[in-house]
Design a protein around this nucleic acid. Structure first.
Lengths: 162, 162
DNA sequence: TGAATTCGGTTGCGATTTGAAACCAATAGG
DNA sequence: CCTATTGGTTTCAAATCGCAACCGAATTCA
């Protein structure tokens, strides 16, 4: 794949793990319940060598866990770890964006509903600490506890401008 | 870049537009207020030829809009369209995931706060139509108004399993 | 008014990655 | 015991990446 990003930025660092488009299709399949190599292959259309490579990386990065099945087996199940499971919010954000902006006339291929009520879920919304909805213009980005010199400098430049 | 995905899936289709890791760094910069070619270049570390390619694609896909500045200008500003702006939720989801899973001991490089209160924003949460928080196990995926045969078949296979 | 620098690219090139296919050993299923 | 499936690895051509060089127009500097 590509050269890893060295920036101390959660987005850049996340992209080192899940910055590949095949990876997201693999993760999507995992949330559909897929766990076997051949199923990932069939459902995404990825080439075998790439699938093997991506799965190995994802296991190494702690997104998937590889378990043997069948006792004396060369058969495996790839299951999402908790770290992997928590990608769910990002995936849903992607689905919602795709549904909003790709299909004309609301002719979306799939809708996500709450099982219990049968009604569609709400769109993901940024909210303040007390739950009030926020737009991106209500936000500011501050250096966190782990911010180094570079990050601090960068963020101060931004706040100057605005 | 890669061959586009042909699946009728919002995730796959979105990845055709923003499935590249550089693209997300460019979008990140745009949300920081960056609009000029040279600034994108400096702040992301991307090569000039790739930046030119990515920006052209993003303009074509309606994520950015390219405006001339300086009257008789070979100088341009790349600004997010509304379609581009709405990627914000996805980006925030990525930031939150990165902050949660990449930095040990909560030593995150940046925190996102509400400007008005100075307090950190809430984590993005899936909610039902009436606002109750949901986990991914509370959800079901149904074919939408634009679902074709392939999607229907696929989704019915999934519901069989669970 | 020149001279130097910046901006927004394009071109060329070697190194890396991709995608498709062929191949393969082990095992499960009938 | 035979066949198909699983989970890969290998091979190879084509595409892409990343880096550096170059470039014309325009802006800034002296």
């Amino acid at each position: 794949m590509a050269k890893p990003h060295r920036q101390h930025c959660p987005v850049a660092r996340m992209l080192n793990i899940v910055g590949d488009h095949w990876t997201w299709l693999i993760v999507r399949e995992a949330f559909y319940g897929v766990s076997r190599f051949s199923e990932f292959e069939r459902n995404t259309g990825i080439a075998k060598n790439l699938l093997a490579d991506r799965l190995a990386r994802l296991v190494e990065d702690g997104i998937f866990e590889k378990r043997d099945i069948g006792e004396r087996g060369t058969r495996h199940a790839y299951r999402l770890t908790e770290k992997g499971e928590s990608l769910h919010t990002v995936l849903i954000a992607m689905v919602q964006w795709g549904n909003d902006h790709i299909y004309p006339d609301g002719k979306v291929p799939l809708t996500i509903i709450e099982r219990a009520s049968g009604k569609p879920i709400k769109r993901l919304q940024l909210t303040s600490h007390d739950g009030a909805p926020l737009s991106r213009f209500d936000l500011a980005v501050l250096p966190g506890p782990g911010a180094g010199r570079a990050v601090r400098q960068r963020l101060s430049q931004i706040s100057e401008k605005s």
